[in-house]
């Protein structure tokens, strides 16, 4: 566990370093945010001095690192608000979007994959495979744009195609505003998850435990559920773990497409505005989010696999 925490810290340090230097390598300056695009060089220089941007790069880096280590992410240059406050406003939205998308697609994929494996080489199996492969192949920016067009222009009022409604102000509207983005965000996970489960269950026919189950005359249902499905959950969980990372980067696109004020939007906006502290804070928190998601998946994997569980407990 300690080794894992150390590895996570290293990942975060690398992320921080990359964002810090990449942001400063880009032309332009955050000073324009404050004094406007047609400010004189002298005004820019004075604002940069105020922000500490005139100091040598390594000094800036050391200062920033020291500040972040104390838990202070600084203030947004654009809004003047603290970065942590900005993040607290945005994080729940991305978190909820990802969760809703997972909760919708993963159970569906598990059912589809299991049914397809049990009815192997039937039209039902073929249908699941075709839908699954389509869900992987369809680019989400294309489908997303198409849905925005469809529900925004041709079917107005059916489902909101843009924007965000807070849970407190209108619970139903809140859910409705999540439908389209959550659908597009997780679409690809459906195909990958269903395919993985299906292939794994079909291949489990060759395992010794399924053969022994048959040799002992166990009912087909028992073999399917307790042997083939239960064991196939292991590779499937590992794959879902990878997909959560993919969904996080996908949320950047989806939030911008559907105009949701989540982390993805914050990240794009802060980078575009060269709002250095906010961009660093957003990237870091997405990285933390990603690492935690991986940790949760690994814990889930351990819960499913007694062998790994014992290794966990042993260290």
């Amino acid at each position: 566990m300690l080794r894992r925490a150390a590895a996570m810290a290293v990942v975060l340090l690398i992320v921080l370093t990359l964002v810090f230097f990449l942001m400063r390598m880009a032309p332009g300056s955050p000073a324009y945010l404050i004094v406007g695009a047609d400010a004189s060089p002298a005004e820019i220089a004075s604002v940069e001095r105020e922000l500490g941007l005139d100091k040598p790069l390594m000094v800036q880096y050391a200062t920033e690192l020291g500040r972040i280590l104390t838990g202070d992410l600084g203030e947004s240059i654009f809004t003047g608000d603290t970065v942590s406050h900005e993040l607290m406003l945005r994080l729940p939205i991305t978190l909820e979007l990802t969760m809703v998308s997972l909760l919708f697609w993963i159970p569906l994929a598990l059912i589809a994959g299991r049914v397809a494996a049990a009815r192997r080489d039937t039209p039902l199996d073929a249908t699941v495979r075709i839908i699954g492969n389509l869900s992987i192949a369809v680019p989400s920016f294309w489908l997303g744009a198409l849905l925005v067009l469809l529900f925004g222009l041709y079917l107005p009022g059916v489902l909101p195609s843009s924007g965000w409604v807070g849970l407190a102000e209108d619970p139903m509207g809140h859910l409705r505003s999540l439908v389209l983005p959550a659908f597009v965000l997780g679409l690809g996970t459906f195909g990958v998850t269903a395919n993985t489960l299906r292939v794994s269950m079909i291949e489990s026919v060759r395992t010794d435990y399924v053969r022994f189950g048959h040799a002992m005359g166990l009912p087909e249902r028992r073999i399917n559920r307790s042997l083939a499905f239960r064991n196939s959950l292991l590779p499937t969980t590992a794959v879902v773990g990878q997909l959560v990372g993919v969904m996080l980067s996908g949320s950047v696109l989806i939030e911008n497409l559907f105009n949701l004020p989540g982390m993805g939007r914050l990240l794009v906006d802060s980078i575009r505005r060269q709002d250095y502290p906010l961009a660093v804070g957003a990237t870091l928190s997405l990285a933390v989010f990603f690492l935690l998601a991986n940790l949760i998946v690994d814990i889930l994997y351990a819960a499913l696999n007694p062998r790994v569980r014992q290794k966990f407990a042993g260290t």
Binding site: D208, Y209, R211, F212, S226, N231, N305, P306, R307
Partner: peptide
Amino acid sequence: TSLSPVTP
């Protein structure tokens, strides 16, 4: 390998 590895 003839019993399921994930069940007591």
